[in-house]
Amino acid sequence: MRREGSAFSGLGVVMLKELSDHLTSVRMRVLEWLVVLVALAALYGAVQQIEDTTAQDPFLFLRLFTTSRDPLPSFVSFISFLVPLMAIGLGFDAVNGEYNRRTLSRILAQPIYRDALLFGKFLAGLVTLAISLITLWLIVIGLGLLLIGVPPGGEEIGRSFLFLFVTIVYAGVWLTLALLFSVLFRSPATAALVTLGVWLFLMFIWPVLAGAVAQIIAPPDPRYLALGLQTPATAVTEQILARLSPSTLFAEVVVALLDPTTRSLGPIYLSQLQGAVLGAPLPIGESMLIAWPQTVGMIASAILVFVVGYVIFQRQEVRA
C-alpha cells in the first residue's frame, strides 16, 4: 500500500535548521580550526620540500597535496585522517540527541515522515562538510599560488577538483556511519565512542589484519615464496579485504587522481606492462577510469550504511 503524501515534505526545513545549527555550533568551529591549522602545517612542509627537491615537474601543483616532509605527513594523509573525525563529530548525536532533548516525538507529531528528519540531518551534515572542505581546498590552491608562484595547469585544477569531490564522498561515508550509530545508541557518548572505535579499526587495524586474513583464505604458494615473490592469489585477496575499509578506497582514489603516473591500483603482471612507457603521465580521463570503481564503492557503502540506519530508525519506538 502506498503512503500518503511525499516522504520529503519538510526535508528542506529540517536541512536548513540543522545546517544553521552546525554552522553556528562551537563544535564545528573547533573542528574547522583543527583542520585548517593541520592543513596549513602540512602545506608548509610540502612547499619546503618542493623548493628543496623538485625543480622540474609537470605536475608541481599536485605535489602540494601529496608531498610530505618529516615529521609531518602530507596534506592528503592529514585529510584522510581528519575528515572522518569531522564527520563523526557532526553526526554522532544527530538522532539520539533529539531523544535526549525530548524533541523527537514533538517533531514527529508534525506532518512529516521520519525520512525527512533523517535525510535532512544527513544532507545538512554533508553540506557542512562540503563547505568546510571547499574552503580548505580554496585555501590550499590560493596559498599554493602564493608560495610556489607557479600557476596550475587546467588538468591540475581538474584533478584537484576531482580530489575535492572524492573527499566529500569520503566524508559522507563516515557521516552515514555516525548517523547509524546515533540511531542505534541512545547515549551520544556511547555512539561517539563506538563510531570512533570503528574508525580506528577500519583506518589502522584492518589494513594490517587484511594481510593476515588473506594468508589464511589464500595461503601463499611455496613456489612463489621460493622466488621471494608474493603469491598473486594472496595479494588479490588481501587487496579485496583491505578495500572493505573506506580509508583504503580513499587512499587508492587519491593516488590515482593526484599522481598522474598511476596506471593500476592492483597487482599487475609484467606482461600487462608490455609497451607501456613507465613514468609517463596518463590523461585525466584515464586516471578517472582507474579511480572510478573505488569512488563508486565509497558511494555505495555510504548508501548501504544509510539504508541500514534508515530501516532501524523507521522501526524504532519514539517514546523516551
Binding site: 532533548r101 525530548r102 507529531a109 508534525q110 512529516i112 515522515y113 523516551a320
Partner: peptide
Amino acid sequence: AREPLSVKRRVGYLPDTVGFYDG
C-alpha cells in the same frame, strides 16, 4: 497508520515532558 500526515496536520501533541531546542 495509513494517513499519518492527514492526522498529524490536524492533531496537536504535547508529549510527556516536552522538549524544545534550548539554543
